[in-house]
Structure formats: structure tokens, C-alpha cells
């Protein structure tokens, strides 16, 4: 999977609360809690940062190389997209 041109954005209409420093998405039994790196990835999905930008943000925060975290970031964003809390502004460009 490429991590270049894809740009994720937090989906609108998802209820978000900051509770004790963590983000809680959704307010029912299906609620999802995001802490630490998961929270940072979600926060960074602002419709402007590409997946590789977000990998760079995470790497900078945790003292790693973007290449080290890129795959995990991509995987997590795909999970968030599958859950409907993130959507893709730009999908993969044709190769």
C-alpha cells in the first residue's frame, strides 16, 4: 500500500469528547477511545496532512524514523476509515 498521496480527514458528524486527556469517539456502546499515538494520528487527520505527513508527525513525537512508523500509521488510518470515523479526501493516485 502506498503512503504517498492519500489524505485522511476526520469524518464530520462523529461525536468527539476529550475525557481525561483521551479522545472518545461516538457516545454510545460502540464508542472508541483513542489515547497517545492513536489520538495523535486521529488529530492529525485534518484533511491537509497526507498519510506520510502523519507518519512524520508521529515519528517526530516519538523519536523514530518515519519509515519505521509508516506501516502502522497507514494500517491504523485504514482501520479508522473502516469504522467510519475517518474518510479519505484523496485516495491513492493511479500508478
Amino acid at each position: 500500500m502506498t503512503s504517498g498521496p492519500r489524505v485522511p480527514r476526520r469524518a464530520l458528524g462523529v461525536r468527539v469528547r476529550l475525557v481525561a486527556g483521551n479522545l472518545v469517539l461516538g457516545v454510545d456502546a460502540e464508542g472508541m477511545e483513542l489515547a497517545d499515538v492513536a489520538k495523535l494520528i486521529y488529530e492529525s487527520a485534518d484533511g491537509r496532512n497526507s498519510v506520510s505527513d502523519i507518519a512524520g508527525i508521529v515519528a517526530a513525537e516519538y523519536g523514530a524514523e518515519p519509515e519505521e512508523v509508516g506501516e502502522d500509521v497507514t494500517e491504523f488510518l485504514d482501520e479508522l476509515a473502516a469504522s467510519g470515523v475517518v474518510e479519505w479526501v484523496t485516495e491513492e493516485s493511479p500508478r
Binding site: 476526520r10 464530520l12 458528524g13 462523529v14 461525536r15 468527539v16 469528547r17 476529550l18 475525557v19 481525561a20 486527556g21 479522545l23 488529530e43 484533511g47
Partner: peptide, 18 residues
């Protein structure tokens, strides 16, 4: 409208609720 709703969500992400 989308810009306003994005701002609303940004606020919700940063307002601590106990």
C-alpha cells in the same frame, strides 16, 4: 458549512469534559 462543522469538531476535540 463543512468548514464550520470542522471548527465545531476541532473545538469538541480540545474541550475537556470530566
Amino acid at each position: 458549512v463543512r468548514s464550520v462543522l470542522t471548527t465545531c469538531q476541532d473545538i469538541a476535540m480540545r474541550v475537556e469534559t470530566s
